[in-house]
Write a protein that binds this DNA or RNA. Structure first.
Length: 271
DNA sequence: ATGCGGACCTGTTAGC
DNA sequence: TGCTAACAGGTCCGCA
């Protein structure tokens, strides 16, 4: 479900509901996520007040006066605001009840997500420490991508999906950005010129920003913090469009597996 | 250091 | 209609 634009959409939807709000109670129904749900959610979070909700890559950071809740939605996770009267359903693993009566509810069928805790600067947490630059910030430059890719034989698609290289880029937006930049997804990262990385950095920024503006991409059931779906799906150029005509040249879009992930591309427009 | 495959889970869909 | 296999938006870990 969630890549950077979806996580940012969730953050924007949730922020007004959680910021400056005190946590009253936490109910953990299923501890077994990717890692066990941090015990601090029950020992330290109740009574704490959320100061801010930030995002780093695909991680959501709920900063409180007692520490920071680090949340990742994995592949199928969601966080939404529920009313106190809504009964918990299947896969509703954690409820965080807020002052005012509403509930921040974590649901995750596949349980690839996580809810962790740190009392220190979250940027220094082991999971965040090695994250690459934010693609929507100025720190992601063509020079940076060019330097990091030298001598790398890895295909460019898994290269830009590596969170240590760039934070927050998943399968959908990697596919889309490479199409926009006219770069073949299987091309070795180290065999791409500086000008082409300039194009790619621009394409990444463009596609991610456009997706954020439209509330992300809803493939199955993604909904933002306010419950509405994302509307970027209809703007996808190649993802989910294998066999359809390329928007650029009209030839059939091809599909294959690159770096163990399904990949759609145009064999003519992308080199 | 790099790159690959496996692992964690459930749900949906395609194919027989 | 029903069973099975493949695949799905993520990413860490261990091994070669």
């Amino acid at each position: 479900m969630p890549e950077l634009p979806e996580v940012e959409t969730v953050r924007r939807g949730l922020a007004p509901h959680v910021e400056a709000r005190r946590v009253e109670r936490v109910v953990v129904r299923e501890r077994n996520l990717r890692w066990p749900v941090a015990s601090e959610l029950r020992s330290l979070l109740p009574g704490a007040t959320v100061a801010s909700l930030r995002r780093r890559g695909k991680y959501l950071l709920f900063r409180t006066n007692a520490g920071t809740l680090i949340a990742h939605l994995g592949m199928s996770g969601s966080l939404r605001i529920a009313s106190a009267s809504e009964p918990a359903g299947r896969h509703d693993h954690v409820d965080i009840r807020l002052a005012g009566g509403r509930i921040l509810r974590y649901n995750d069928p596949r349980r690839f997500g996580c809810l962790l805790w740190t009392r220190r600067d979250p940027a220094e947490h082991a999971l965040l420490r090695h994250l690459g630059p934010e693609p929507l910030e100025r720190e992601l430059t063509a020079d940076y991508l060019y330097e990091r890719s030298r001598k790398r034989k890895l295909a460019v698609k898994p290269f830009i999906m590596d969170s240590r290289v760039v934070a927050g880029v998943g399968n959908i937006y990697a596919s889309e950005a490479l199409f926009l930049a006219g770069i073949h997804p299987a091309r070795p990262a180290g065999r791409i010129s500086l000008p082409r990385y300039d194009k790619l950095a621009g394409s990444l920024r463009q596609v991610l920003a456009a997706a954020v503006r439209r509330g992300g991409t809803t493939l199955r059931d993604f909904v933002g913090g306010d419950g509405s779906p994302g509307y970027f799906r209809q703007h996808l150029q190649v993802y989910e469009r294998a066999g359809e005509p390329c928007p650029g040249c009209g030839r059939k879009l091809r599909s294959g597996r690159i770096g163990q992930r399904g990949t759609v591309y145009c064999g003519h427009c992308q080199r």
